[in-house]
Lab assay of single mutants.
Amino acid sequence: ASVAVIAAGTQGNIFATSALRSMRFLQILRMVRMDRRGGTWKLLGSVVYAHSKELITAWYIGFLVLIFASFLVYLAEKDANSDFSSYADSLWWGTITLTTIGYGDKTPHTWLGRVLAAGFALLGISFFALPAGILGSGFALKVQEQHRQKHFEKRRMPAANLIQAAWRLYSTDMSRAYLTATWYYYDSILPSFRELALLFEHVQRARNGGLRPLEVRRAPVPDGAPSRYPPVATCHRPGSTSFCPGESSRMGIKDRIRMGSSQRRTGPSKQHLAPPTMPTSPSSEQVGEATSPTKVQKSWSFNDRTRFRASLRLKPRTSAEDAPSEEVAEEKSYQCELTVDDIMPAVKTVIRSIRILKFLVAKRKFKETLRPYDVKDVIEQYSAGHLDMLGRIKSLQTRVDQIVGRGPGDRKAREKGDKGPSDAEVVDEISMMGRVVKVEKQVQSIEHKLDLLLGFYSRCLRSGTSASLGAVQVPLFDPDITSDYHSPVDHEDISVSAQTLSISRSVSTNMD
């Protein structure tokens, strides 16, 4: 405001104040949320940038038409019409005319000016109207692209899951042992070998009828009888010197917790746990005396209480009078009846079946994303299906024409109403129809010849004498029936064969 007042002088105070007050009108834009329509302006900018070359070309040609039209109309009207006294007036008329506004304040009066105005109007309006069409088509394409992008975003994750499931299904095939990355992934998420051994031990116990592997080994086996189970490696608790092959000598807290839970599941009659010990102070733990958990001091820290809870689970003690015997301790020893080589084939089979199920689920979810969402998608899918159906029908028609023997030239002739090819031409065609016709002709010829021969033979049998045999009239074959199959017997006289037959029969009768 200060700059405006200084620039306008003393009389500019009122002007500056009114100008600043008129800017209050811009507050109405906040009512229509114009300040939060950044996406709309961004869309407009992207459309203009995408079609910038077309817009520049249309505007450039339109500007050239405007300059030439205004100049030529000015030359034609400057002497006869006072409205075109300057080139600026003519340029104003050209702008209003070519933009199809047409105020009518300035019009050419001479015939030359009117002809020039009409010609440049028809030429220039087309170029001035091009930017509107370019922007409209650009907006339509952009909206369609955003629509497809939205659908693509919805299909991206199911497609990625389907590709991942397909690759993992491919890589978990037993015949592709060189693909090891997927197996490394499952090695990292699978439970430890100790848990798998416990699982298979329970399965084997159920197969043995509820007997433990130790009891199965204690059962008497006759001499020479084959053992029911192959000899396997035996594993004891981590306190002993022997372990399962492939295990580490260090046992983690999870393994100890699972070991304690498995020992508690063996039965309360074979294992008696004394009350857990509780320390009397955060600094020292008295293991010899058993106290109640309700006497825990409230001033303990979080670490002390955590250690106390761990001691409740991981440090059970047995009383002296209830101490288990050596046999019970041997039964409680952890027996590992299986090795990694025995378990891994079954584990890989389970993983393979899981990968198949996940692949089928991913495939079903991806197919669900291909379903249409709204009416536009339904129409688009219907149009695509219609085009596909037309293509299939056209391909089927082409194959039928190839089989029947109607080529493209014959199809055009039928469409024009011309006469089709004759039967002889159809026979000569190298097509399925021509071959079928040729075979039918040959079969008819053979059938006719057989009928003639059978009739001749029956007449010979009825006559009974050589004289009557020679008097029999043998009809000749019709050459038209034989089609294109020409037998060497067709052109010979059958009477010669009949005479030869009669001579042979007379000779045979004389010999008798």
Rank of each mutant, 00 (worst) to 15 (best):
Arg264Pro: 14
Arg212Leu: 06
Gly405Arg: 07
Arg176Leu: 13
His486Tyr: 04
Tyr373Phe: 15
Asp304Glu: 15
Arg309Gly: 12
Gly434Val: 13
Asp451Gly: 14
Thr349Ala: 14
Val404Gly: 07
Val347Ala: 10
Glu289Lys: 07
Cys460Phe: 09
Arg414Trp: 05
Thr465Ala: 09
Lys449Thr: 03
Pro279Thr: 07
Tyr178Asp: 12
Glu331Val: 04
Gln286Pro: 14
Trp167Leu: 01
Asp342Tyr: 05
Gln402His: 13
Glu415Lys: 15
Glu425Asp: 10
Gln381Glu: 02
Glu429Lys: 09
Met344Lys: 12
Gly455Asp: 08
Ala233Pro: 12
Ile257Val: 14
Ser292Gly: 14
Ser301Gly: 14
Ser422Pro: 13
Asp493Tyr: 13
Ser445Ala: 12
Ser269Tyr: 12
Gly246Val: 12
Arg399Trp: 06
Asp484Ala: 09
Gly267Ser: 09
Arg217Pro: 11
Leu357Arg: 01
Thr465Ser: 07
Ala290Gly: 14
Asp490Asn: 14
His236Tyr: 13
Arg217Leu: 09
Pro345Ser: 10
Pro316Ala: 01
Gly385Ser: 15
Met278Val: 13
Ala225Pro: 07
Pro222Ser: 08
Pro324Arg: 07
Leu312Val: 11
Ser175Arg: 09
Asp223Asn: 08
Gln204His: 06
Pro231Ser: 07
Glu327Asp: 06
Lys254Gln: 07
Arg205Gln: 07
Gln204Glu: 11
Ser249Thr: 14
Lys419Met: 03
Lys270Arg: 09
Val404Ala: 06
Cys460Arg: 12
Asp493Asn: 10
Ser508Cys: 13
Ser497Tyr: 06
Arg265Gly: 06
Lys332Glu: 03
Leu370Arg: 02
Lys376Arg: 15
Ser171Thr: 12
Leu501Arg: 08
Met278Thr: 07
Lys438Thr: 12
Phe243Val: 14
Met259Arg: 00
Asn510Thr: 11
Pro488Thr: 03
Val443Leu: 14
Ser466Ala: 11
Phe359Val: 12
Leu338Phe: 12
His491Leu: 14
Asp490Tyr: 04
Gln286His: 08
Met344Val: 10
Val361Ala: 15
Lys348Glu: 10
Gly260Cys: 13
Arg462Leu: 11
Arg264Gly: 05
Gly405Cys: 02
Pro372Leu: 02
Asp490His: 10
Glu440Asp: 05
Gly246Arg: 06
Val426Leu: 11
Leu338Ile: 07
Ser353Phe: 14
Leu357Ile: 06
Arg459His: 13
Ser262Phe: 06
Ser171Pro: 01
Pro345Arg: 14
Pro245His: 09
Glu326Val: 05
Phe308Tyr: 08
Glu331Lys: 13
Val489Met: 14
Phe200Tyr: 13
Pro293Leu: 10
Lys295Met: 04
Val350Leu: 13
Arg435Pro: 12
Asp342Gly: 06
Leu390Met: 01
Gln499Lys: 08
Gln499Arg: 07
Ser301Arg: 11
Gly246Glu: 11
Lys365Arg: 08
Val496Ala: 13
Trp300Arg: 15
Val439Met: 12
Asp490Glu: 03
Thr241Ala: 03
Ser283Arg: 14
Arg205Pro: 08
Leu454Val: 10
Tyr170Phe: 10
His236Asp: 15
Leu390Val: 01
Gly409Val: 14
Lys412Glu: 02
Pro268Thr: 01
Val400Gly: 13
Val328Ala: 07
Gly224Ala: 08
Ser261Asn: 04
His272Arg: 08
Arg406Pro: 08
Ile494Phe: 14
Ile430Ser: 14
Gly252Arg: 11
Gly470Cys: 04
Val507Ala: 04
Gly407Val: 11
Ser227Cys: 07
Leu190Pro: 13
Ser497Ala: 12
Arg411Met: 10
Ile393Leu: 03
Thr306Pro: 10
Gly210Cys: 10
Ala320Gly: 09
Leu273Gln: 14
Pro245Ala: 14
Ala471Asp: 05
Lys449Gln: 06
Arg505Leu: 02
Phe302Tyr: 15
Gln271His: 09
Pro238Gln: 12
Leu199Met: 07
Ala166Val: 08
His486Leu: 11
Ala362Val: 13
Arg250Leu: 04
Tyr229Phe: 11
Leu169Pro: 00
Thr294Pro: 00
Ser495Pro: 08
Glu195Val: 10
Leu453Gln: 10
Arg392Gln: 01
Thr266Met: 08
Arg406Gly: 08
Ala233Thr: 07
Glu331Ala: 06
Ser242Cys: 05
Asp388Tyr: 14
Arg371Pro: 02
Lys298Gln: 15
Thr482Pro: 13
Cys460Tyr: 11
Asp255Asn: 12
Ser299Asn: 15
Val232Ala: 11
Asp187Asn: 12
Pro324Ala: 05
Phe243Cys: 14
Lys348Thr: 10
Ser227Thr: 10
Phe302Leu: 11
Met389Val: 02
Gln499His: 10
Val216Ala: 10
Val378Gly: 14
Leu501His: 05
Asp255Gly: 06
Gln444Lys: 06
Asp223Gly: 07
Leu501Pro: 12
Val439Glu: 04
Val489Glu: 12
Thr291Ala: 12
Met432Thr: 03
Asp173Tyr: 01
Pro316Leu: 15
Val496Ile: 05
Asp484Tyr: 12
Gly455Ser: 13
Thr398Ile: 14
Tyr382His: 11
Cys244Phe: 03
Asn510Tyr: 04
Trp167Arg: 01
Gln397Pro: 02
Asp304Asn: 15
Ser508Thr: 06
Asp493Glu: 12
Gly464Arg: 07
Thr398Ser: 13
Leu452Arg: 12
Phe193Cys: 07
Leu312Pro: 14
Val436Met: 14
Leu314Ile: 13
Arg194Ser: 08
Gly385Ala: 06
Tyr185Cys: 07
Ala177Thr: 10
Trp300Gly: 12
Tyr373Cys: 02
Asp401Val: 14
Leu370Pro: 02
Asp342Glu: 10
Asp223Val: 12
Tyr334His: 13
Thr277Ile: 03
Gly267Asp: 09
Ile356Asn: 10
Ala166Asp: 00
Glu330Gly: 12
Thr306Asn: 09
Glu215Asp: 12
Ser468Asn: 09
Ser395Arg: 08
